[in-house]
Simulated assay, not measured.
Amino acid sequence: MLYRQLGTTDLMLSAIGMGTWNIGNQWGQIDESTALATVRSAYDSGVNIFDTAESYGIPAGLSEERLGKALIGIRDQVHMVTKIGRWGRRTGQTVPMTTVDMIRLCTHASLHRLKTDYIDVMLCHEGKIEDPSIYLEGFEQLKDAGTIRAYGISTDRLDVLQRFNTHNTCSVVEVDYSLLSRNPEQEFLPYCQAHGIGVLVRGPLHKGLLSGKYSSETQFTDTVRSEWYESDRSREKLNRKLAKVEQLKTALQPGSEMVSKALRFVISHPMQPVAIPGAKSPEQAQANAAVGDALLTPKECEDLIQLTKLPKTAGKTAVAAR
């Protein structure tokens, strides 16, 4: 496993981490013993960074609870990232994040579920926030108290990141980036590099599409990916992405080879981001971690990019047929 410093923090992280959204039943049911074994398998394979959020899981918080249980006895050997700002949104009543006390309340609730007395990286989970001042004030207080070690935001928008970094105190950002989602390369990642902001990559396999196991005939039924069918526009975007995957299949075998190339593409960016793919089994966690031992050359990355270039009309036929 390759290890790298996260921005200007003192955190030395495995190039491949593990996202724990998947172990909380939102991506389909998973029993607790399997969830805990998946986390430990990642750890045994060299992973030392685990990402979660207060809102992950059915019921909410289940991913944090399971992660906390899985890391009992090895907490001091790993790093935890969690997020606040979306508690209760899925069930219709959110916690109003309008005072520093609410920031502290949600943070201490996460500490309880994670069975820890500190969090390595705390992120704001409001990716479109207009005024982050309450978060910034609350996170600074929590950092001064030793409750959190670094903080930042999970967002795909540069303007939001810039507002969150208004005092140059944002240490970490989590962003959606993959072979199917390369927008961050244009301005987002260069901004992070210029300001020493460490980058965590969610969606490095684009919610499983870059495994190559799915096609336009696939019907996703989990509570996360079923949102892809909510409108004609979202279905069209899905089918264009699936068309790109079909192009990748002309050079890569679906499964382990495609997963390996997709994950290595992300961690090979000059910014040295840390990828946090999810996993639902010990075997999947082990396979993801194994990818973190090498990088792609610039030419290999460019070859993959060329394979994902499509005519503007690609993907529309499949939408019309549904």
Rank of each mutant, 00 (worst) to 15 (best):
L295F: 13
Y43A: 09
D144E: 15
V319G: 04
A251V: 14
P311F: 11
A275M: 04
E236M: 09
G138H: 07
S63H: 14
G292S: 08
A294M: 08
G315Q: 10
I49E: 03
Q284C: 07
V201S: 00
H206I: 06
P270S: 08
Q286P: 02
I148S: 01
L161C: 06
V319K: 14
V121F: 01
A294F: 04
E300P: 06
A53V: 07
G46T: 04
S256G: 02
V259T: 15
A262C: 14
T8M: 12
G203Q: 06
T94K: 10
I72F: 02
G28C: 09
L295C: 07
E174C: 10
S216V: 13
R202H: 14
G278N: 03
T52A: 08
Q193G: 03
G24E: 00
V39S: 07
L242C: 05
Q77Y: 05
W228K: 01
A37R: 08
Y229D: 13
S171K: 09
N239T: 11
T169W: 06
F139T: 09
Y3K: 13
V95C: 11
C301Y: 07
L158V: 09
G196W: 06
V39C: 12
R89V: 13
G146E: 10
P204F: 07
A53G: 06
T116R: 02
Q29W: 10
S226M: 09
G278I: 04
L189E: 03
N48W: 00
R40G: 07
E300I: 08
T297F: 10
T155G: 12
K309N: 10
K241S: 13
P184W: 14
S63M: 12
Y118L: 00
T297R: 11
P254T: 10
D293G: 02
D303R: 11
S256V: 13
A243V: 08
R163V: 08
L6M: 13
S178L: 03
T147F: 08
K280N: 13
V266N: 00
T98W: 04
I119T: 01
K312P: 03
F139W: 10
Q219H: 15
E130V: 14
A60T: 02
A70R: 01
R66K: 08
A262L: 08
D10G: 15
T317L: 15
A279Y: 05
E246V: 02
V266R: 01
I72M: 09
M271V: 13
A35K: 00
M122T: 12
S268R: 05
T308L: 08
K128D: 12
N183H: 12
G212S: 04
H112E: 15
R89Q: 11
L142Y: 04
H112W: 11
D131Q: 09
K213V: 01
V245M: 05
T94L: 11
L252E: 00
L180C: 02
S45T: 07
K207C: 09
T91M: 11
N22E: 15
A294T: 13
Y43D: 12
L242E: 11
T297M: 05
F50Y: 02
T297W: 05
D44H: 12
